[in-house]
Amino acid sequence: MVRCLERAELVVGALLLTLILVLMLVQATQRHLPVSGWVWTGELARFGLVWLTFSLAGYLVGRDEHITLKLVDHVARGRVLRGVWVLANLVVAAIAVGFVFEAAALVFTGPPQTTPALNIPLSWTYVIPMVGLSLAALRALANTLVPAPPAMESVPEERAE
């Protein structure tokens, strides 16, 4: 189940990255053509970048590849390292849950505004961040059940330094 979820997150991330690339190429091409450009390409590319960030949050938390300070991993061992690992994941989960509640409020009770170029209801743009942060919270909670954090010995040397 988790591997299928990881694959789905990676597929969504790859599709969003491809979308951003194509839209940016379309924008760059339009600048050199004697026709008026499509304003919506820039708007959708910006939304795509935000959606990419939040859609991969759960994947990165689940694989312990999100932004962290690994200083404690070099010093602590045993139960202390496990305690820090659990505490850090609980903090990540709590913050993600807080963001999920705020995103849900924006999705379900947000203002009736639309985006300038695409006329998408602004509340719809918060759905992907809400889902991505929900997955990040669940993955952080699941990390607290993992017997031990990833060992520093399993990290490649260039990353460990």
Results as ranks from 00 to 15, higher is better:
Gly37Leu: 07
Val50Pro: 00
Glu102Ile: 07
Arg82Ser: 10
His74Thr: 08
Leu118Asn: 04
Ala8Trp: 06
Ser134Phe: 04
Pro149Ala: 13
Ser36Trp: 09
Phe47Leu: 14
Gly78Phe: 09
Val131Phe: 03
Asp64Gln: 15
Glu158Met: 09
Glu6Met: 06
Pro121Asp: 04
Val146Trp: 06
Asp73Cys: 08
Ile128Asn: 04
Gly78Asp: 11
Gly110Ala: 08
Asn143Met: 11
Leu23Ser: 08
Val26Leu: 10
Pro129Asp: 05
Val92Asp: 02
Gly83Met: 10
Phe99Pro: 00
Glu43His: 08
Val61Met: 05
Ser134Gln: 02
Trp51Ala: 04
Arg82Ala: 12
Lys70Gln: 10
Leu81His: 09
Leu44Trp: 00
Ala105Asp: 14
Val11Phe: 12
Leu141Phe: 04
Thr29Trp: 15
Pro112Arg: 11
Ala136Gln: 00
Pro129Lys: 04
Phe99Leu: 15
Ser55Trp: 04
Val84Glu: 01
Gly58Asn: 01
Glu157Tyr: 12
Thr115Lys: 05
Leu122Val: 14
Phe101Gln: 07
Glu153Thr: 13
Ala14Gly: 11
Val146Met: 08
Glu161Tyr: 13
Phe47Arg: 01
Ala57Tyr: 03
Ala105Phe: 11
Leu19Phe: 14
Gly37Ala: 13
Phe54Asn: 02
Trp51Val: 00
Arg82Glu: 06
Arg7Leu: 13
Ala57Pro: 01
Leu133Val: 07
Glu153Trp: 07
Leu87Trp: 15
Thr68Gln: 08
Gly62Trp: 03
Met130Ser: 04
Arg3Gly: 00
Gly13Asp: 05
Ile67Ala: 11
Glu153Asn: 10
Thr53Ser: 10
Val86Tyr: 07
Leu133Arg: 00
Val86Asp: 05
Leu106Ala: 10
Leu23Ala: 14
Ala14Phe: 12
Thr18Arg: 06
Leu52Cys: 09
Ala104Ile: 08
Glu9Pro: 01
Asp64Glu: 15
Leu52Tyr: 03
Met1Val: 09
Arg63Ser: 14
Ala45Leu: 08
Gly37Phe: 10
Leu60Cys: 14
Ala142Pro: 02
